[in-house]
Each structure stands twice: as structure tokens, then as C-alpha cells.
């Protein structure tokens, strides 16, 4: 399902990049603002689907470099590892573990938060991205 429309092709060139950047942005802001891994993954998938519509599924697969179903599996593995990480700190699985970098108590700044929660969300992101692309690309190639 490729389109010959010049407008779509030209717009795709800019839009795909923007969509992917936006999907990361959605993923990272998720903890405090609307967003998160699920939404980010959907936006990312939309980017690749747009690319597939404009340039064909083969091109989209080449741009992905990895099979989408592998992306989904890796995402599932990352999410599991993020959950199991809590064991290392003696907690129940999927308990949040936080690390604050460069805190500045004087200024009331807790520092840059890092946690396994973010890793888990990255896993969710990859699962959604990979699964949706698996479905759409396979279905489109089928037609």
C-alpha cells in the first residue's frame, strides 16, 4: 500500500521524524504529565505506519532495522527485568527503586530522578511499538 502522492511523500519526510521525537517526549514526560509508554509507543508506531504508507512496507522494515516482533519481545524482556530488579534491593518484584542524581537540598532540589519505573515504561513503549507494527505491516503485506 504505497501512495504516489507527492504531498504525502514530502510531508512524511518531516512528519516521521517529528512523530518519533514526539513519541520519546511522550514517553519521558509520562510520569508527571499526560503521556507514558503506551501512548508513546502508539505515536511511534503511527510514525512508522505513515512511512510505510508513503514508501512501502519494505522501506519501513528497513528503517526499523529489526523485525517488529523482536522489538516487542525485547520490550517484554526489558519490562520483566525492570520488575525483577527490585529483588536486588530486597523488595517485592515491580517495586519502584529510585536514585536522585546531583541533589541540591539547599535549593530544595531533589535532583534528577532515575528509576526502574522508567525502564519498565521503556519496555511498555517497545512492546506497543513492536506489536502494533507487527500487526499493521504483516496485514499490509498480506494485501
Amino acid at each position: 500500500m504505497t501512495t504516489t502522492s507527492l504531498i504525502v511523500r514530502a510531508a512524511t519526510r518531516i512528519l516521521v521524524g517529528l512523530l518519533l521525537v514526539f513519541s520519546f517526549y511522550m514517553l519521558l514526560r509520562g510520569h508527571n504529565e499526560p503521556g507514558g509508554g503506551f501512548i508513546g509507543g502508539l505515536v511511534g508506531a503511527t510514525g512508522f505506519i505513515l512511512y510505510a504508507i508513503a514508501h512501502g512496507c519494505r522501506a519501513a522494515r528497513e528503517a526499523l532495522r529489526v523485525e517488529p516482533q523482536s522489538i516487542a519481545m525485547v520490550g517484554l524482556g526489558i519490562a520483566l527485568l525492570a520488575g525483577v530488579m527490585a529483588y536486588l534491593f530486597g523488595d517485592a518484584p515491580f517495586t519502584g527503586q529510585w536514585l536522585f542524581l546531583w541533589p541540591d537540598p539547599a535549593a530544595g532540589d531533589k535532583g534528577v530522578p532515575l528509576s526502574n519505573i522508567l525502564i519498565f515504561d521503556v519496555g511498555v513503549y517497545l512492546v506497543v511499538l513492536g506489536s502494533v507494527l507487527t500487526l499493521v505491516l504483516t496485514l499490509e503485506e498480506e494485501v
Binding site: G30, E33, P34, G35, G36, A79, G83, F94
Partner: peptide, 18 residues
């Protein structure tokens, strides 16, 4: 440590469900 309740529930409080 998150203000977006929906997302915090998804990835922290109910991470196993997710």
C-alpha cells in the same frame, strides 16, 4: 514521585498487572 496518577498507577502501583 509522579504527578500523573494514571501513569503512576500503570507503571508503579499496578506494574504487575501492566
Amino acid at each position: 514521585f509522579g504527578r500523573n496518577i494514571v501513569n503512576v498507577i500503570l507503571v508503579d502501583f499496578r506494574a504487575l498487572d501492566t
